[in-house]
Every structure is written in C-alpha cells, then in structure tokens.
C-alpha cells in the first residue's frame, strides 16, 4: 500500500521536524545565534502578549462561528425542508458561499460590503441618516472576520443538516401529526433528537477547520488585532523569521487541535463499526 507509506511520510516527518526545531534557537535573520534553546522558545512564546490575545481570539472565533452556524443551519435546514416555490433555486443560492474561495470572500466583504466609505453597509447607514458609518474592520476586526467565516460555513451546516433532515421518516412525521403534536413539540421531541448526531459532526469538523482559519485574517490584514494561533505561527516565521519560535507555536496548535480531533476520531470510529 504505497498510499500508507506516502501518508506516513506526510504525517510523521513534518511533525518530527517541527519538534526538533521547537527546541532550537534558529532565527533566519540572526545566523550567528544557533544551538540548543531548551524550553526558551516555549517560554517566550507563552510570554508573548500576542499569545494570550490570539488564543482568546481563536477560541472566540471558533465558539462564535460554531454557535452561529449551527443555530442558523438548523433554521435554514428546516426552512429548506418545507415545500415552497423555487426551492431548488433557493437551495443553490444558500449553499453558494461555501464554494467561494476564502481569499475572494474576504476581499469582497472587506471592500464591497463592509468598507466604511464605499461599502454597502455604509450606504445603508447613510440612508438612515448616520453620517459616520461604522468602520467594521477598524473597530471590530474579530467580529468582521467571524462574520465572513460564518457566512462561509453556514451553508455547510445547512447542507449537512438538510440531508440528515430528509432522511427523517415520513411515517414518523405523519404519526406525530396524527397524535396532535404541535410544531414546537414536534421540533423538540422528534426533529432535534434526530439531528443530534449530524450536529455533533458539524461542530467537530467545523472546529478543526476554523481553528486553522488563515486566509481571511491574512487577506483582510487584521492579523495584528484579530490574529489567531495559526496566524501567529505564520507571523513568527514570516515577519520575525524566528523558526524555533514558530515551531513551538505550531506544536501548541497541534496539541490544541489534537484534543478536538481525538473526540472526532472516537465519534467517527464508533460510526464505522456500526
């Protein structure tokens, strides 16, 4: 199985090397200063004021986006499950954002929608008599990034929950209606339990991807204010040219992601045997 060999190479070699560099003092701008750094990379990485801020940013981003997309996704899935005219087209419109490349969507949101002078939101605010339109990326960078990411991932949640919803038994639906369950009861006792599993999957997979959000932050150039851990690693490498430090940061990110992926692996594993 050549694939296994290739994948093992991919999985283990970079990780081993990251591990190695993390303990090295190795700065591309400072070739004289080499050698064993011990734990000082980690020490300075944790002491970096950006670390705490970016860690908080990461968590806020992940939690915020996931709550938004799951709630919105359930709502959208329920809506798209109803019968109405032109449902097929609406479904296409709703899932479209997921296929947009991150660089495109960040620039479009930043320049065409949320720009403080020429953006659409500024226009709307002016229409209502506001003379100083809100500068989204200047005043609330994290929120703006979150909005873009949520816009991209909402279709994902909706699409998956919709697929799950459509596998709900028609008979069960009819039986519930026969028993006189009203819409709210029906939703709480039949739909939501049915969706519990797909929702878990959505949460876990989104967590993995949103932990690694990078392009949205880089392209909108708010890394200094709303950077996450991935961005911090990038800036250690590209701006500070400090390989050892970046590797230490990478390891921290790996540990964080592992906590989540361990959960997901267990979950999917159970599914595999069933």
């Amino acid at each position: 199985m050549p694939s296994v060999l290739v994948l093992s190479g991919w999985a283990f070699i970079p990780l081993a090397l990251t591990f190695y560099f993390a303990f090295l003092s190795y700065n591309l701008q400072d070739p004289e200063n080499t050698g064993w750094a011990g734990l000082s990379n980690f020490y300075y990485f944790f002491k970096d004021p950006f670390f705490v801020k970016d860690l908080i940013n990461t968590i806020v981003l992940v939690v915020g986006v996931i709550v938004t997309t799951v709630v919105g996704g359930v709502f959208l899935a329920l809506l798209l499950d109803q019968k109405f005219w032109g449902r097929g087209i609406v479904r296409l419109l709703v899932i479209a954002p997921f296929f947009i490349m991150p660089t495109v969507s960040s620039l479009v949101w930043k320049n065409l929608i949320m720009h403080p002078v020429f953006g659409l939101t500024a226009e709307i605010q002016r229409f209502f008599g506001e003379h100083q339109p809100f500068d989204w990326f200047g005043r609330a960078p994290l929120f703006s990034v979150g909005l873009i990411v949520a816009w991209q991932w909402l279709p994902y949640a909706a699409l998956i929950l919709l697929t799950a919803l459509q596998s709900l038994d028609e008979e069960q639906k009819d039986a519930a209606q026969m028993d006189g369950a009203n819409a709210v009861n029906y939703f709480w006792h039949i739909v939501l339990p049915h969706l519990a599993r797909p929702i878990t999957v959505v949460i876990l997979i989104e967590t993995i991807f949103i932990l690694n959000v990078f392009a949205e932050i880089k392209v909108t150039s708010v890394g200094g204010f709303a950077g996450n851990l991935t961005y911090l690693v990038f800036s250690q490498l590209n701006d500070a040219n400090d390989v050892g430090m970046a590797a230490a940061g990478g390891l921290v990110a790996v540990v964080l992601a592992n906590i989540v992926s361990a959960l997901l692996v267990r979950f999917v594993g159970k599914n595999l045997e069933a």
């Binding site: 994948l7 991919w10 999985a11 070699i13 970079p14 990780l15 090397l17 990251t18 560099f21 993995i208 932990l211 690694n212 990078f214 851990l229 991935t230 690693v233 990038f234 490498l237 390989v243 970046a246 590797a247 940061g249 990478g250 390891l251 990110a253 790996v254 964080l256 992601a257 592992n258 989540v260 992926s261 997901l264 692996v265 999917v268 594993g269 595999l272």
Partner: peptide, 20 residues
Amino acid sequence: LWMLSTKMMPPAGALIPIYL
C-alpha cells in the same frame, strides 16, 4: 481512522518544516 487523523493536523504544525 489514522488517515483521517492526518487530515486533522493543523497546517500551522507542519508549516515550518514544509517551508524549510
């Protein structure tokens, strides 16, 4: 499952060696 887990490694962890 192991293959799946390789997909979950954050790119930030692999960026440094791959870059070098």
